[in-house]
Structures are given as C-alpha cells and as structure tokens.
Amino acid sequence: GEKVAIIGPNGSGKTTLLKIILGQETAAEGSVWVSPSANIGYLTQEVFDLPLEQTPEELFDNETYKARGHVQSLMRHLGFTASQWTEPIKHMSMGERVKCKLMAYILEEKDVLILDEPTNHLDLPSREQLEETLSQYSGTLLAVSHDRYFLEKTTNCKLVISGNGIEKQLNDAPLERNDREELRLKLETERQEVLGKLSFMMPNDKGYKELDQAFNELTKRIKELD
C-alpha cells in the first residue's frame, strides 16, 4: 500500500531498478523477491501494446470488468469525452493512450502499479486527472518522474538513489497551498460524479432535485477556494 517515488539524477539507474523488479534486466547481479500474489501493471511514457483499431467500448467489453457505467465513469474521471468511447484508440494522443492503459490496469485490479515518467505526454488538466485517480488508488505504487509536483501529489515516501546506495525518506509535510489544491480537486471530482448522474436523469426523476442541489453546493465551495 505504500506510494513510493524513486528519485535520482539522470543515469543513476531509476528505470534499470524498475526493470530489475520486473525481471526484464537479466544483466543485473543479485536477486529480487517479488510476492507471488503481486499483480503488477507496468506503465511507461510510450504505450505500444494497445489494440489501436479497437475503440474503448470494444477494449473494455470484458466480462471480468464491472458494469459499463463504472467503466464510463472512470473514463470521465480521466478526462475522456463521451465521443471517445466509440472512437478507435489510434486517434488518441500518446497522453490519452497512457491514461487508457492506466484505466485498463485499474479495471483489472492490479495491486501494484509501476510508473516510468507517466506525465511526459500529458497536458496540465490530464496531469491533474491522473493525480486524482492515483490518489484514490489503494494498491502499491512505484513511480519514476521528473515532475516533483506530480510525485508530491501521488506518493508518500521516496527511494533516493545517491552514490552506490538507496536511502528511504518520508515525504516532507505538504504545503498549505497544496492541501487547498487537494481539496479543490476532491470537490471537482465529486462534482463530476454528480454531473455524470444528472446526465442520465430528467428534472422530474426521483432524486434529481437532491443531486442538483449537491451540484450547486459543490460549485459554490469550489468558487470559494479559487
């Protein structure tokens, strides 16, 4: 359940360490023990193994996944539009493909996520959506990134590569402004969920009024934080 940032200068071996853990680096000496029960998802900044001709609707049409509404809700949380549900993945940007792959891992209930520079192709709104999704992820996270703000938002300790060793450090206490920003992102996510429910309802449906009031209240609180 730890959320770990791997920090070190260029060439220090961060990506090599990830590949050793994954068993992809055969030249390394020594051994690494990985729990046999660990279900690992490895996400890099370049995603080449998605079926580009398929649409998300086809890709996520799997009996092991939960209801279609859950899948579409997760897509909205990651910043996808409704029209992208039926568009081929080949039309997605590299950043959108990264989020699509992350979505597959979440739906497959991977309990360990290993991320190597996942934000390189993402714009600011996409980074925030990724941060919010990972902040709610309950499994173990190992992340290599040069984006210090991203690591601050998504991890709670560091493995710092320095010299010939690795030192574990707990993250510094977050700044007050980051707590405020975190609350804003949380409220934005709640508002997005409410809006998603409202989009399937008519004004005279049962529960519409309560949801509409909740949407207005969340909007008010978000404006107070701006």
Rank of each mutant, 00 (worst) to 15 (best):
Q24E: 15
Q24D: 12
E25W: 15
A27Y: 08
A28S: 14
E29H: 10
G30I: 09
G30W: 08
W33T: 14
S35P: 12
S35R: 10
P36I: 08
P36C: 10
A38G: 02
N39P: 00
Y42N: 09
Y42R: 06
L43N: 13
V47N: 06
D49I: 08
L52I: 10
E53F: 07
E53Q: 08
Q54M: 14
T55V: 02
E57Q: 15
L59T: 09
L59K: 06
F60M: 07
Y65I: 04
A67M: 06
A67F: 02
R68K: 14
G69T: 08
G69Q: 06
H70Y: 12
V71G: 07
Q72M: 14
L74T: 02
L74I: 04
H77V: 00
G79D: 11
T81R: 09
T81P: 00
S83K: 13
S83N: 09
S83T: 11
Q84G: 11
T86K: 13
T86L: 02
I89Y: 07
I89E: 12
H91L: 12
S93H: 04
M94W: 07
G95Q: 05
E96M: 13
R97L: 04
C100H: 04
L102M: 13
L102T: 06
Y105R: 05
I106S: 01
L107C: 08
K110E: 04
K110H: 12
L113A: 01
I114N: 00
D116H: 02
P118S: 09
T119E: 08
T119I: 06
N120G: 07
D123S: 09
L124P: 04
P125H: 12
R127D: 03
Q129I: 01
L130R: 04
L130G: 03
L130C: 09
E132C: 10
T133M: 15
Q136Y: 03
Y137S: 01
S138W: 00
G139H: 02
L141F: 00
L141N: 00
L142C: 10
V144Q: 03
H146E: 14
D147A: 12
R148D: 11
R148K: 14
K153T: 06
T155G: 05
T155D: 03
N156D: 13
C157H: 12
C157S: 15
C157I: 03
K158F: 07
